[in-house]
């Protein structure tokens, strides 16, 4: 019973990590935040683009060195570079 539960849990975790195809994220031209919606979750702008590269996920913006280097002050998912 315990083994069965363990196996089911493992399968559930594995399934969560397996998502086929890249989600169509778009980057905000103002703050570089990535979103799969129509509005930027950080600044609320509608100026989004599909031309971006690199991803940075900031979990703790106060302690993160990457956030400090890139000048990011809010947690979230950002593009490294917005191309156009």
């Amino acid at each position: 019973m315990r083994e069965k539960r363990k196996r089911r849990r493992r399968r559930r975790i594995r399934a969560a990590g397996r998502v086929d195809g890249m989600p169509k994220f778009r980057a905000c031209r103002q703050c570089k935040a990535l979103t799969d919606g129509d509005i930027c979750p950080i600044c609320g702008s509608k100026d989004l683009t599909v031309h971006w590269e690199g991803i940075v996920v900031i979990i703790d913006p106060i302690r993160s060195q990457v956030a400090e280097y890139l000048g990011i002050k809010r947690a979230g998912m950002y593009a490294l570079r917005v191309l156009g």
Partner: peptide, 21 residues
């Protein structure tokens, strides 16, 4: 996909990971 999943996991579990690049 995996970064999005890891972000959700880090926020819910509270592990000391500051960022993912």
């Amino acid at each position: 996909n995996i970064m999005r999943f890891l972000k959700a996991r880090a926020e819910s579990s509270g592990v000391q990971v500051m960022s993912l690049v």
